[in-house]
Design a protein around this nucleic acid. Structure first.
Lengths: 333, 333
DNA sequence: TTGTAAGCGTTATCAC
DNA sequence: GTGATAACGCTTACAA
């Protein structure tokens, strides 16, 4: 497959490469009408397509950004990536998505690869442990935005859910519905993944606020794969919880599966409220009450800040930007 | 952010750029041990990272492939993309994913952009209408693979589900369970999207095979957004269907929602079997019986063929490769 | 208004 | 064993 280059066009149109370049970059202010037409014709006839690689090399910009997601299996991740892709596409940026699978080494490898590919910026769902890598990028002023999770010692703009407020909303709803023995289940908190820790903390605070008992046996960060086991433990207790908050979509699935397999009726035997308004929550029977993240806004904001940084705007808040959650009331609690 | 180049390394190590290049490309056969060490040291100290853009320009290969998906909102799409990304990553290829949103113009625009970016190949869930574009790529021997849908007049390797067999499986199961009045709902067939047409056709054939009545009023390709309306029509009929096949995940959602809102018990009032083994089918109550596509195998095969083509292997079957579906028996029929 | 030439960071050829 | 030097396809001063 012989690609046609600018030189071919130039030759065919009887002009020099630079004139063709001018044309392509819409600088026809001082260009003869006839030259312009000849170039147009030549491009058309040859089916010329500019080579963005060559362009990138010269311009030192690839109009590509990388997105590294900690774990793509959360619906939240895929949806926010879609939003980011959509926003950035409108600005003529392309997106390369990488899935770190919650593995810091993989994340580091991806960062290196994407840098080698000269991406103009990076949006990362960080895995917390690559602090030095992040900081290195940061001191070099490399455009970087975090999403979903913050990293303690790194000053990077971070888009996050207001987890405290989110859980306050959840507990408030549980309280309103009259539940007393309540709990929350999230994925493992051993790596201090911010949303999980914050959600648990927010849950406890809210319980105190609404005067609900805080029973630590129902408040758990559970390792992947051990959820069923954990649930069995919880429901074997003398007084099992009346209501459970699912820390994310995957936890919700585990709870629902357990409930079904053990014939727990929702919400009568067990009320449920889930963080993340996953698509199947409105389909489920009964429909699941959820706490929704403003995915669109979060994705757009992340894109916006990244582009600002790419374009060289220095005065961007390097802080965490928290987005409020919203209660989507359905029938599971 | 000042990037360090090969020249910097060369200078620091007191060698020429070419030697550094040799080093980077593991050609140390004739390289002095000391030179090697000096280069290693210089790279380390400067934190040098090769520039793949420059490399690509020279090598005429970007080690990047594009994936254009017709509609990302199907779980099937996202999952197959994950598989593709995973397979190609192992071969050190990167993937740029684009969502054509079922819009042929958008698809064409993406193809152009990806070509401009010098992707080495393209995996497309085609939107059927860009036949000329596909053919142009094809005559130029540009590495191209279709997935999920075939395009009649284009000779490109195509990975597809064996839809006929899949629906045979579904109908067989319906028959086995004793249902007689059966139907199938898919998305709109006006654009002759292969899977939809084939699934409907396969359904009819299978009904004949198993001696079930073929009632066209229960066999429908429905426009997006009109599913609820259609369902209302179907269930107002004198003898509504006892069992329905959902042509894909989105259709399944619509059916489940309708069933819940109209208090149809599954499977007693309405049995359901869905094509695509979406994650929530095992969670739902009752769990949904599905026809699963071998997503892993399909994604891997697509990646494999694409890479073959990229590497210049000419004798690849340009035909449709059909993958068999599998019944996942649960409780909805 | 258009052309010339240098340069972006690599790799490849061939000379030393 | 190592180093000049010329590409790769484009942009951009600056010259004409």
């Amino acid at each position: 497959m012989k690609r046609v280059t600018m030189a071919d066009v130039a030759q065919k149109a009887n002009v020099s490469k630079s004139t063709v370049s001018q044309f392509l970059n819409q600088r026809y202010e001082f260009m003869g009408v006839k030259t312009k037409q000849r170039i147009e014709k030549a491009i058309e006839e040859l089916g010329y397509q500019p080579n963005m690689i060559a362009r990138s090399l010269k311009q030192k910009s690839s109009t590509t950004v990388g997105v590294i997601v900690a774990n793509i299996s959360h619906e939240f991740s895929t949806r926010i990536i879609q939003v980011i892709e959509h926003s950035l596409h409108q600005l003529n940026y392309h997106v390369i998505v990488c899935n770190a699978e919650d593995n810091p080494e993989k994340e580091k490898k991806y960062i290196d690869m994407l840098l080698a590919k000269q991406v103009d910026g990076l949006i990362i769902f960080p895995t917390s442990t690559n602090v030095n890598v992040y900081n290195e990028l940061n001191v070099q002023d490399f455009p970087l935005v975090f999403i979903d999770r913050f990293v303690p010692e790194v000053e990077v703009p971070t888009i996050m859910l207001d987890n405290k407020q989110a859980l306050c909303l959840a507990v408030k709803e549980l309280d309103r519905a009259g539940y007393e023995r309540v709990g929350i289940l999230t994925n493992s908190t051993i790596f201090n993944v911010a949303p999980r820790v914050e959600r648990i903390e927010g849950f406890k605070q809210a319980c105190r606020k609404y005067g609900l008992p805080v029973d630590e046996t129902f408040i758990r960060g559970v390792e992947t794969g051990k959820m069923t086991e954990e649930l069995r433990g919880i429901f074997q207790s003398h007084e099992p919880p009346e209501a459970l908050v699912a820390g994310n979509d995957l936890v919700l699935m585990d709870i629902l599966k357990y409930a079904r397999d053990h014939h727990l009726r929702i919400p009568d035997d067990l009320a449920i409220i889930a963080v993340d308004d996953v698509s199947f929550s409105s389909i489920y029977n009964p429909a699941i009450t959820t706490i929704a993240q403003p995915i669109e806004k979060m994705g757009e904001k992340a894109s916006e800040i990244l582009i600002e940084k790419i374009l060289g705007n220095k005065n961007i808040e390097k802080d965490i930007i928290r987005f409020p959650a919203a209660l989507v009331k359905r029938s599971s609690c």
